[in-house]
């Protein structure tokens, strides 16, 4: 059976993600500190709600950063959701920093009205990844964020979304790192299917 670990870095607001995994018959292990870890989870989900702010520091003091980086060194997959994906990158706005696993920054969206909250479509650029295959054209997912990623390497971008005229990457694939700006756990049947496909691919 697939062992999935979900990183809890202090917000404790994981109910909808755990419920979504429950509907997929996945019993996830929630890690709040490194010592919670059973050796060798097959896949890690790095959720995200909240602000960049103190997350990196928390990940370091709890030992979770070192734990996740060992997982990465073994080329085991990580799915970053929203802030979780943003943390893959280097520099955030207003001095906050990410984990720097991928080159690029995390600027604020340009729109006057933030956060970007609600359903929006993804234009799929790379249709043959676990995060896009078998998903209909221009699927709609649920977004809630004020920041976006600006990856240095455009080839990792597998999907793009536009908010108030500003296009931003909403799906990235750079195995073992996978990321979505939207929340599959809150995105109805399509979100369910996306999580199922990803778990199937990384199994």
């Amino acid at each position: 059976m697939l062992e999935v670990a979900v990183i809890d870095y202090g917000n404790g607001n994981l109910g909808s993600l755990l419920a979504a995994l429950g509907r997929l018959d996945v019993k996830a292990q929630v890690l709040t500190r490194a010592s919670d870890a059973a050796p060798g989870a097959d896949a890690v989900i790095f959720p995200g709600v909240g602000a960049l702010g103190t997350v990196v520091q928390h990940l370091e003091t709890s030992g979770l950063r070192a734990l996740i980086e060992r997982h990465l060194e073994r080329q085991r997959p990580i799915l970053g959701i929203c802030l979780g994906m943003q943390l893959f990158f280097e520099e955030g706005a207003e001095g906050g920093s990410g984990l720097g696993w991928l080159k690029g920054s995390i600027p604020e969206l340009n729109s006057q009205v933030l956060p970007h909250i609600g359903w929006n479509t993804v234009q799929q650029l790379a249709p043959h990844t676990a995060l896009t295959v078998n998903i209909p054209q221009d699927p709609a997912y649920y977004f809630v964020h004020s920041y976006r990623i600006l990856p240095a390497n455009p080839h990792i971008v597998a999907g793009i979304t536009e908010y108030e005229g500003e296009p931003f990457p909403s799906v990235i694939v750079d195995p073992p790192l996978y990321g979505v700006q939207f929340h599959p756990e809150l995105s109805g049947h399509l979100g369910h299917r996306l999580l199922a496909q990803w778990l199937e691919e990384v199994r």
């Binding site: 909808s16 419920a19 979504a20 809630v144 809150l186 995105s187 369910h192």
Partner: peptide, 9 residues
């Protein structure tokens, strides 16, 4: 409700 809902609550 949460167990059933795959949309924001």
């Amino acid at each position: 409700a949460r167990a059933l809902l795959a949309i924001p609550l």
